[in-house]
């Protein structure tokens, strides 16, 4: 297994750890971001070919797979939108509770 895969696994685990353990609203958001990045990293590494070229008018036969990159670009845009929304909600929650401890935000249960 190559380094990028290991790195993305590590990122993913850190992200999951962050969401599971951290109580701070914003740290949860960081955790989410980390998970997203890990997947992006994974996807990009999928398309990587050792010694490959840019696929636009290549000189040789070995090219990098462009599709994962396109996917990652799209995913980043989506993640951006999600994160922005999360942060805005977090700010409103912070204003209402005057606290960022997520374990206190459990009016909805049962």
């Amino acid at each position: 297994m190559s380094l990028p895969y290991l790195a993305s696994l590590a990122l993913f685990s850190i992200g999951l750890y962050c969401i599971l353990v951290k109580r701070d609203l914003f740290k949860v958001i960081y955790g989410i971001c980390l998970m997203e990045f890990s997947i992006n990293l994974f996807l990009v590494s999928l398309g990587f070919v050792t010694g490959g070229e840019v696929p636009i008018s290549p000189t040789g036969t070995i090219v990098v797979d462009p599709l994962p990159q396109a996917m990652v670009l799209t995913a980043i845009v989506i993640e951006f939108a999600t994160t922005v929304f999360l942060i805005s909600v977090a700010i409103r929650l912070f204003k209402q509770y005057e606290d960022t401890d997520i374990s206190k935000m459990r009016r909805l249960r049962g």
């Binding site: 949860v28 374990s103 459990r106 249960r109």
Partner: peptide
């Protein structure tokens, strides 16, 4: 009903 604790971390833990 206590399994629907309202804690986000529990919910994420279920998923994981």
């Amino acid at each position: 009903r206590s399994i629907m604790s309202g804690h986000l971390r529990d919910y994420v833990a279920y998923l994981a």
